[in-house]
Amino acid sequence: MKTIEFDKIEPTWFNIEENTKKECLKNNIEFYDYLGNFVKFKLFNYIKTKALIETIKTLDFNDEIGTRAILNKRHFSNKNRELELAISDFNKKKIEVFEWLDKTKNPYFFILNPVYQYGAGIDYKSWINERYGYIKVAHTGIQNLDIAIDYLKYKSELTE
């Protein structure tokens, strides 16, 4: 079944998308800028760099080959230095995300919104596409609750 046919039966994803477009208009944000810039780039990098900090904390730096593979670096320093670098990178990504959210009227909508995109080239599998048409791919998930909590802490620190 193609998404157009599915939307006629159960228009949940269509309704989410339309609601997101309306909210973007209220906040003077382009819908595809929100999807492409914020959701797929800024939120993704935020989640990835935050996860890297936790990975480095549990990483055994005595296993040089494994550490190199996990960090995706040819040369690496000691655990403390790599942790400092990861935290510094995370703080940059955090500032990017939170500054973007500060410009909106309803930041928690944009954090917790379960946006979807049509599968136009995203996670494309030709045998699925031929048989079912475009598939919808979710771009937000459980990590967004963590981001909402982090944003709440950030806002409360600003008001103190």
Rank of each mutant, 00 (worst) to 15 (best):
F76L: 01
F14E: 03
E96A: 14
F31P: 05
V97F: 14
K103L: 03
W100D: 10
D150T: 11
F98D: 11
N19L: 10
G121S: 03
E18A: 06
A120T: 12
K125R: 13
E54W: 03
I149L: 07
D7Y: 01
I9N: 00
N78P: 11
I149N: 14
F44E: 03
F31A: 01
R131Y: 01
E30D: 15
I70W: 05
Y118M: 07
L52Q: 09
G119V: 07
E84C: 14
C24A: 04
T58A: 14
L152V: 05
D150N: 14
K2E: 00
K103I: 14
E82K: 07
A86I: 15
T3W: 00
G36T: 01
H139S: 02
K26F: 07
D123R: 15
F98N: 13
K155G: 06
G121E: 08
E130V: 11
L101P: 13
Y132Q: 12
L85R: 08
L145Y: 10
G121Y: 02
N28R: 05
D150C: 10
K93H: 09
L101S: 12
I122M: 10
T20R: 08
L112I: 10
K105C: 02
A51N: 15
N144P: 01
F61D: 07
Y134I: 00
D150M: 12
K153E: 10
K94T: 03
I65C: 05
N144D: 08
S156V: 03
I16K: 05
C24Q: 01
F44K: 13
N37C: 04
F38E: 08
T49A: 03
G66F: 02
V137N: 14
T140A: 08
D33N: 06
K136C: 01
N15I: 00
W13Y: 15
R131N: 04
N129I: 05
K92P: 00
N27G: 11
Y116W: 14
Y118R: 12
I16F: 15
N78D: 06
I4H: 00
E96R: 09
I95D: 14
K26I: 03
D89V: 05
T3Y: 02
C24S: 05
I149E: 06
T58F: 08
D60Y: 08
I128F: 00
Y118V: 01
N113T: 06
A120R: 15
G133E: 08
S77F: 12
E84K: 10
P11L: 03
Y132R: 01
T58P: 00
N28L: 05
I9L: 12
F41Q: 09
H139I: 04
I56K: 09
F44I: 01
A148F: 09
R74V: 06
A69N: 11
A51C: 06
T55H: 01
E30R: 02
V39R: 11
I111F: 04
Y151S: 11
E54H: 07
V115G: 04
N62S: 12
D63K: 13
